[in-house]
Design a protein around this nucleic acid. Structure first.
Ligand SMILES: [Zn+2]
Ligand SMILES: [Zn+2]
Ligand SMILES: [Zn+2]
Ligand SMILES: [Zn+2]
Lengths: 138, 138
DNA sequence: CTAAAACCTCTAGCGGCTTTAGCTGCAAGA
DNA sequence: TCTTGCAGCTAAAGCCGCTAGAGGTTTTAG
């Protein structure tokens, strides 16, 4: 049996975060020692790794909850899981698109100031005036 | 003089957000009408536009506060402003790099499942096992 | 003059944690 | 055996950047 500290060490998820995941229903309420400390099995550690990996890929707690529920029912169709992954991919692509616009504007803004004083600073002027921008960036 | 609603309409910043910015010290405490409603000048509207634009470019409230403080002192050197813009550009580039890794993994994950049941779903397997990934994505 | 729209303050909520405070548990060294 | 000190516990608050709602007041249009 693993302590919560062991879980943290082997998965890289911080101790308070593990307790938070339990509270959020991603991890079931762990068994307790006589002294009321959490004790975990290997399968619970695996589940925590799953959660960590999913979080790293940007999935929400809610999406992860659905995936875990699904994975408890191997006979069900997996369309729902596939949809969640596809949606996350779309979300990531949208974010990239937005950030690339920002990158272009910020690059322009931060390379155009050849002044020394705030009075003529291109950064300040560019922030004050969106007309200098080349894109909409919403 | 403009009401808070006028400000919202002309800048696209929502009314509660304007009040929030005031609370955060980005907008100074507005003058009030006899009935205690906020009244703004054109320069305050310009400042709000500045704030909005900076937020759209991803700057934090804190960074915007610094920029506003700076812009009150046109004689000062603008190195600080330039640094803020450059840092934001770096931040955006980091985010893009991270998201591109995620995009690659998610693309792989969401195109590889040709199964019908959760039991063999590639999505579930890929999330459970980072070894199937091609990058670190931290 | 009235009714509706806009405004006010204050508080709570979102997501995904992190931090803090004030406890108790437990193992190892003297 | 005692003590020291890390590890664990709970509950609550804090973080960011808003957003939403309750419950009241002011302004404006007709
Ligand atoms: Zn400058
Ligand atoms: Zn712009
Ligand atoms: Zn599948
Ligand atoms: Zn991975």
């Amino acid at each position: 049996m693993l302590t919560i500290g062991d879980m943290a060490k082997t998965t890289g998820v911080k101790v308070p975060t593990i307790r938070y995941y339990e509270q959020m229903g991603l991890l079931s309420h762990a068994e307790r020692s006589e002294g009321n400390q959490r004790r975990y099995s290997r399968s619970e550690r695996d589940r925590l790794s799953f959660i960590k990996h999913a979080r790293e890929l940007g999935l929400t707690i809610e999406a992860i909850r659905e995936l875990i529920d699904l994975s408890q029912h191997p006979e069900k169709p997996c369309a729902e899981a596939d949809r969640i992954a596809a949606e996350q991919l779309a979300t990531v692509r949208q974010k990239i698109a937005k950030l690339k616009k920002l990158e272009a504007e910020l690059e322009r803004i931060s390379t155009h100031c050849h002044s020394n004083h705030v009075r003529d600073c291109y950064v300040i002027r560019a922030l004050a005036n969106h007309d200098l921008c080349e894109t909409d960036h919403d």
